[in-house]
Design a protein around this nucleic acid. Structure first.
Lengths: 221, 221, 221, 221
DNA sequence: AATGAATGAGCTTTCATTCAT
DNA sequence: AATGAATGAAAGCTCATTCAT
């Protein structure tokens, strides 16, 4: 037995800690997420990912079988990370309208802060959601929002403040649309109308507008 | 002697009409639009376009210098075709709220009917609008909507019906968001919430919702 | 009858004089010479030639069957143009050494002034002279120099001033080498030794050196 | 059990040795040198190089990024290989004239034996030395000759045998011209004057002539 | 668990050339 | 005498992937 064999550090070129599979995988995933988000699925280059990784291209194939599997892992990761935003909000204790306002604001902030995720979703739509389909249980998680919206709507209706003919999923779509679009389409929209959608002033106006649009939409008139 | 021998059409292999550059170009553009819309810029294959064309791959490079230039031509074409939808609506003669309702409905129908265009816009946003930037005057055309919305808002405000603190561009964005998102994100949204965004029932509900959201948003309360 | 129908100038785009075949050919040749001289045979582009021509690419093929034939025509033209430099010199009336000096100086000036020709010759050597072989009578013309050198050598020998063991062709080669090299190799030689072979000072030194080298070489010691 | 089973060579299709990058690179370089020397930069075909290589076209792009980079590598290699010819000659111990004679003779033999290199230099001059410029320190090496010539000239002058008004670089150019030209221009010159510049008799005459021309040129008269 | 070297398949693009009038 | 449109063939290059250790 050789005691020194257990030593984690080696004296060659790049010093390397004890091989840590999960760290390596996480590193690859992080770099891949950026590459896919930036260039899309077909536009992304495995070589480009490998270059910015601590490991080699070979490792990418070792852990993720091929480019598509890697993309799916990135997608899964992204959906998992952004999930359950609303869990933090404790919407149940607020009055319905305030709760809804909080939800819209939180969605707005979330989308605004996570352009990479927005882009991944847009990219996945370009691919007709076929990779999302192969993912499995992630979808369940996201269904949490619907339950929350349903509760808010129910409480608002009970109080006679909200109308009864609105579906929670449709309302979620309206919220998403107002928050997602200004991030997903900022380049074309910004260029066509020569405005900067990311300026603090616009941002504030849009946030207010999204909240107002949703609150007015649900109100019992 | 056969008088018909002078006829321009030949019965061999691929029949070839009289050389018609603009027809050839238009043909290529049409096929290319579908390929780019379906697969994105990097995902599109010049070979695939060539195969579905009356001409050869060589012709694609003859008329459009390279893949990117072809993509730009497709983009330009798409924006030009969808322009001036609102021109057809005689919005000026309708009362403000009806005019706005018409505009939203028309935008909704338009986006619903032109998925290929929606996808191209989404794709162009993945590329950060860099190709749109190289296009030039097309942007101007689209600015027509803003003028129209401004007129509607002005008339509504004059009548005391509309609020004064809404920007035409922002309102246009809200309208676009509500109409665009359900087409651009139908795959991921549909899969996550297990619904079909294209079903006639949903479609009708969403159209109504978009109109209501916008009308309520602009109303002076 | 329409009198204006006979007018040679047309009112469309590029006005065009009466079609003049020999002018068109000469135009093509001139442009082609530059292109071939600049880029070599394989490096030259038929399209590039066509673009800088008054006519179209089609005309190039109309007058010259293909790229190689055009190259050969250029080569022939070039050799014809530079031929018989020595004819102008009237070397016969000068004493042998003065005549030889004149010849070297004239060769030097000639090579210095005709870089394009030098390059064509270098290019043709890259192609192992295979196109020159297909040319025919041009070679005869250039043999004039040899006769002249022979006369000079004979007169010098008769006067007891020149040595008897030098071949006219070899002497011509030595003259050519000294005059040709500094033009043909100016880029590599200049870059390696960080000097400018075209500077007036160097040029003068080299001219003097070439003359001296040749005169000393032929002298009876 | 077969002991030879562990041997690295396999008997299938193309035998493939142990992966050996430097061998692979060297193999590519060698074949490429021949192709470029034979056909020039634009005339060379990457496919043609690949075919004569133990590896595939893909490997060429793996090690050398593109055709131009490969060409540059070939050029660099060629200049490095031919460098320092004069280092082998112990010129310092010989009397000045003998040393100069040795140098000219060695240059003559060198150019005569390395037609491929001569052709590469000619080709590089067609490209105006632009690739040589991107090479770097190779130039320095070649400057060794100049120092050597300077030493010889100095010693010759000190002995009163050599003239004082000759620059080492210019003398080197004269030597180069006389030795290079008969190789670089052998095809056109040979064809025009119907002689074979490579015949042993001519070769001997030219070697003698080059030596004489240079020795006479430097002599103090 | 990890990897440097290698690669087949296919991609975009270029080129000299010809067709049809 | 002239030409705009068209093209087959092949060139250079890229990509995801695997081999051998």
């Amino acid at each position: 037995m050789d005691a020194s064999a257990a030593a984690p550090k080696r004296r060659d070129g790049k010093r390397k800690r004890k091989n840590d599979p999960s760290r390596t995988k996480a590193d690859i995933l992080e770099v891949a997420a950026e590459e896919f988000s930036t260039h899309g699925l077909s536009g992304a280059r495995v070589d480009a990912i490998a270059e910015r990784t601590r490991t080699s291209k070979r490792m990418i194939y070792y852990y993720f079988q091929d480019k598509e599997t890697l993309y799916r892992a990135v997608l899964e990761n992204a959906y998992s990370a952004v999930r359950a935003i609303e869990a933090k909000l404790d919407l149940e204790t607020q009055p319905p309208e305030a709760a809804l306002r909080s939800l819209v604001e939180q969605t707005f902030e979330n989308d605004d802060a996570n352009e990479a995720f927005i882009r991944l979703v847009a990219i996945e739509n370009i691919h007709r959601g076929e990779h999302l389909s192969q993912l499995g249980p992630i979808r369940e998680i996201n269904k949490g929002v619907i339950a929350i919206i349903e509760r808010i709507l129910a409480r608002g209706r009970a109080a006679g403040a909200f109308r009864a003919d609105l579906d929670a999923i449709d309302l979620h779509m309206a919220i998403s649309a107002l928050c997602f679009f200004r991030v997903s389409n900022k380049h074309t929209f910004g260029k066509i109308f020569k405005i900067d959608l990311t300026s603090p002033a616009r941002r504030a106006k849009h946030k207010r507008m999204a909240v107002e649009a949703i609150l007015r939409l649900v109100r019992q008139e």
